[in-house]
Amino acid sequence: MSERIFITGIGTGVGKTVTAACVTEALQADYWKPVQTGLTEGTDTEVVRSLLTNKQSVCHPEAYCLQEPASPHLAARMEDVTINVKQVLEMAHKIQPAGRPLVIEGAGGLMVPLTEQAFMIDLVQDLEAKVIIVAQNYLGGINHALLTARVLKQSGIPVLGWIFCGNTHSNEAEIIGWSGYPLVGRIPYTPLVDKAFVKEQAEKLSLR
């Protein structure tokens, strides 16, 4: 099976989509967001597509698009939609050509409910993906980061490491040390995220 890299965050709004764009650009990989919620704000797929420079990457359509800006299980319930995890997995196999890496962006963090029975971490395991954890420095961020790292370790899921977004903080070195997972890179705050910024940050990531 070709490599799959799952981008998860320690919470919502920590920089997963920009990170996904940078990782996709760095590897010239394909990109896929299986479940998109909050359609009134546009899709992450549209954002990533607009930020890529290379000509190799393909941004695949979502398996599910839901209007409500909520967890997938809640948005699906509100719209009378049933998310079928088996169909999501089948789609993953269908869209990923042999030999092509696929960057997969999750919704929120690992324990976000995908359905009434399955969580995002269950999808990661079913996809047999390696994980990049996206973190940001905020009050409570250390706790969220280390809880994410612990549940990944306890689940036996392979982790490539951390990407920190936003302003640099000394907590980053401590989180790396306490978790035992390496630093893949950091993406600084910028008021303008564009193709040039994504290409510049992609070249700095330690992924190869």
Score class of each variant (00 low, 15 high):
Met120His: 02
Val134Ser: 00
Ile142Leu: 15
Ile142Thr: 12
Leu123Gln: 07
Gly141Met: 05
Tyr138Cys: 12
Asp126Trp: 13
Val112Lys: 02
Leu114Thr: 10
Asp122Trp: 00
Asp122Ala: 02
Glu116Met: 09
Gly141Phe: 01
Asn143Asp: 15
Gln125Asn: 06
Met111Val: 11
Lys130Val: 10
Asp126Ser: 11
Gln136Ile: 06
Ala107Ile: 14
Tyr138Val: 11
Ala129Val: 11
Leu139Val: 14
Gln125Glu: 14
Ile121His: 04
Val112Thr: 13
Ala135Glu: 07
Leu127Met: 12
Val131Asn: 10
Val131Gln: 08
Glu128Ile: 02
Pro113Tyr: 03
Glu116Tyr: 01
Ile121Asn: 03
Ile121Phe: 07
Glu116His: 03
Val134Thr: 11
Pro113Ile: 01
Gln136Glu: 13
Leu110Tyr: 08
Leu110His: 04
Ile121Glu: 03
Leu127Tyr: 01
Asn143Arg: 01
Val134Met: 03
Ala129Phe: 05
Leu127Asp: 05
Asn137Ala: 15
Asp126Glu: 14
Val112Gln: 07
Leu123Lys: 06
Ala135Phe: 07
Gln125Thr: 12
Met111His: 09
Gly109Val: 06
Asp122Leu: 06
Asp122Phe: 04
Ile121Ser: 06
Leu127Val: 10
Ile104Trp: 03
Met111Ser: 03
Gly109Tyr: 08
Lys130Pro: 07
Leu110Lys: 08
His144Lys: 04
Glu105Ser: 12
Met120Val: 10
Leu139Ala: 13
Ile142Pro: 08
Glu128Leu: 10
Met120Gln: 13
Leu114Gly: 08
Thr115Trp: 07
His144Met: 03
Leu127Cys: 06
Val124Asn: 04
Ala129Ser: 13
Ile104Pro: 05
Thr115Ala: 05
Glu128Asn: 14
Met111Ala: 10
Asn137His: 14
Ala107Cys: 15
Pro113Asp: 01
Gly140Ala: 07
Gln117Ile: 13
Glu105Ala: 11
Met111Thr: 06
Glu116Cys: 00
Ile132Tyr: 03
Ala129Asn: 04
Leu123Ile: 14
Asn143Gly: 09
Thr115Gln: 06
Asn137Ser: 15
Leu114Met: 12
Val112Trp: 04
Gly109Lys: 04
Gln117Arg: 12
Leu123Arg: 02
Glu116Pro: 00
Gly109Pro: 09
Val131Arg: 10
Gly141Glu: 02
Asp126Tyr: 08
Pro113Gln: 01
Gln136Pro: 00
Ile121Gly: 01
Val124Gln: 04
Leu114Pro: 10
Asp126Lys: 13
Gln117Lys: 15
Asn143Trp: 05
Ala107Met: 11
Asn137Met: 08
Leu114Trp: 11
Ala118Gly: 00
Ala107Trp: 05
Gln117Phe: 02
Gly109Ser: 13
Thr115Val: 05
Pro113Met: 00
Gln125His: 10
Gly106Asn: 09
Ala118Asn: 06
Thr115Ile: 06
Ile121Thr: 05
Ile104Val: 15
Met111Asn: 10
Leu127Lys: 02
Ala129Met: 11
Val131His: 12
Phe119Ile: 08
Thr115Asn: 07
Leu114Tyr: 09
Ala135Ser: 14
Glu128Phe: 02
Ala129Tyr: 02
Asp126Ala: 14
Glu105Tyr: 12
Val131Ala: 09
Val134Pro: 05
Glu128Tyr: 01
Gly108Cys: 13
Gly106Thr: 05
His144Cys: 05
Leu110Ile: 10
Val112Ser: 06
Met120Gly: 00
Val131Phe: 05
